[in-house]
């Protein structure tokens, strides 16, 4: 069976290689891909959408409908992880607490947990000692990561970047916090419910902006319709529309990254984990 698989893969690979022989050369200006549609985008992006970054305008305006569903794919992944992995916390299992003044670790069973006590701190069962250097470095980094993420989101019009990249950076900052400290501390600051609701809200901003255009009387996602609402002309409204949906994308991507991390790292219990 293994050999059969290897043979199939080899044949597929050879076929792929063979059929590349007909391809146009790298960077060929006369290839169909660079003569059919690309000239339109290169020549008309500024006058159509007032966005200097052609990639952003194709991504979020000309083919914005695709991007909306790509964002939805990410949300679907978050929902799928939640549906399949999330299991309610079982309170019957034991937990570990450290008595701060003495440094003694105790094991508590049942639900006689020392809640609200400030001398006992909960520690993970596979507890790793507190590492000052890692913790301090991460805490220092997180602010800058988040600031940079906001820059990436806001400057998608002019430079490489946009909602997806910015959202991943924002999500990574929270995940970094969870990795450097512990999962419970992260969940306390950025709860599961927040993550879940933000992820739907993010996509809702995107799809809702599109639906708003539809209700104003233009096609779905035709941001020009938002001109009167935003107080700009129809062309500039497209540029602003792109920013609105980028913010939605960033929100959704950030929340889904965090939500998936919570579920994966704790095997769905969201009690203790990485």
């Amino acid at each position: 069976m293994k050999i059969l698989g290897k043979i199939t893969i080899t044949i597929c690979g050879l076929l792929l290689l063979f059929f590349t022989s007909d391809f146009p050369d790298w960077g060929d200006v006369n290839s169909p891909a660079s003569t059919h549609l690309s000239p339109y985008f290169i020549e008309h992006t500024i006058e159509d959408t007032a966005v200097p970054n052609i990639v952003t305008s194709v991504l979020a305006d000309y083919r914005g409908y695709d991007t909306m569903f790509e964002t939805t794919v990410i949300l679907t992944a978050g929902l799928a992880c939640f549906l399949l992995l999330r299991i309610p916390r079982k309170d019957s299992i034991h937990r570990y607490y450290r008595h701060e003044p003495t440094g003694v670790t105790i094991r508590v069973e049942g639900d006689r947990y020392p809640k609200g006590s400030n001398v006992f701190t909960r520690i993970d069962s596979s507890w790793v000692p507190y590492d000052l250097i890692i913790n301090f470095t991460c805490r220092l980094l997180i602010h800058f990561i988040q600031l940079f993420a906001l820059y990436v989101v806001a400057h998608g019009h002019h430079s490489p970047g946009g909602g997806f990249q910015g959202g991943v950076l924002l999500g990574a900052s929270v995940i970094l916090f969870a990795i450097s400290g512990n999962l419970r501390a992260a969940i306390k600051r950025f709860g599961e419910k927040t993550a879940a609701i933000l992820s739907s809200t993010g996509v809702f901003i995107y799809a809702g902006a599109g639906a708003l255009c539809l209700f104003i009387g233009e096609q779905f996602l035709n941001y020009s319709a938002l001109g009167p609402l935003l107080g700009t002309d129809r062309i500039m409204a497209r540029s602003h529309g792109i920013l609105i949906v980028e913010i939605g994308v960033a929100m959704a991507v950030m929340a889904v990254m965090i939500w998936i991390y919570y579920n994966l790292s704790s095997a769905g219990k969201q009690d203790e984990g990485l």
Binding site: D61, Y62, Y65, E218, Q219
Partner: peptide
Amino acid sequence: EYQMAGWPAPVGI
């Protein structure tokens, strides 16, 4: 035919 985002066929969706 319905043009998403108001762009005609080969350019938009």
